[in-house]
Amino acid sequence: MKRDNPSLYGALQLGLLVNVLLRAQTLFWTREGLATLLSGILVTAAVGLVFARTWPLAQCLALRCGFIALLLAGSGLDILSLWQLYSAVYPDVVNLFGICLTVLIPVAYLRRVSAIAQTANVVLGLLLVACVILVLSVAERLRICNLQMAAMGEADCLDAMRAQCTLYPELLLPALWPDHEKRGTHTVLRLAAFGAVFNIGVHLLLELFFGAAMPDARNPLHQAARCGALSVFDRLEWLQLIVWTMAVSVKLALHLYAVTRLADAPRTTENSLTAMPFFAGYAAVLLFLCAVARNWDFAVMSQWRNVAAWGFAAAVAGIGGIRWLTGFAAPKKA
């Protein structure tokens, strides 16, 4: 009940779930995904761990700026993917500016670590409950014989491996904050495993539901959700969308916190709030990014973001490794 050491582990988990729910699905078949699961986990966890070790040694102004850019790009992509989802479901009703406002305004109330941690836990709980409701509501339509039986191809396995090796910022973020805001020493490993297993679980659900049509389905999770009718309402996808939107807000708040730390921005001493002008700046940058990139190819942007994340992690690992070998003393403040 006392908020001495809020942990951001829940917020990181939520960030990974958002990645899976909004854009990572239908990239591979479940069987291929399962075959490459372990390697995917090990690769991403290893990168995260190496990054966590080398970041304190390597950090400099340029790398900090690079990380901030990566986080801003990730936040922008999250907003754009949410907008695409809404545009597909409710065409001509919700505009990009509206989506930006509705996910960014709540971040004004999520400028404190403890608020992010607690809200993330609640939203994570809601998201898991919503997922359980989704699975229960479509359980009748899940057919085992929808699983694809074609022989495993090398290309499919590579696709699955590539998809599972996507380097999301959430795997790099634990390097930024002090130990008490993580959870234990194996945070990155657990996060990687959690994200990958959830990703496979979602793919399994989709394959059982859609069968061969899975890769062709636009916003497949939403389409599955709309078939669920457990309540007095005729359907459930609106509930899913509400929870996903809430999760995106929390994810943006997490990114704001990380940007605040990276930029060493002012935080009030009494309650460690990120200053309002800094938040306003963050929101303005995201609005600008979204406005610029609204017509760009989303798949290409996602790929570039992934390439940039890998490149950034490699640069940090390289510089940190060299400094470690040459006996560079890390500054005390992470």
Partner: peptide
Amino acid sequence: ISCGLESVLSQA
């Protein structure tokens, strides 16, 4: 009967 849009294309 349940023959939803999502199920008609479940086989290749």
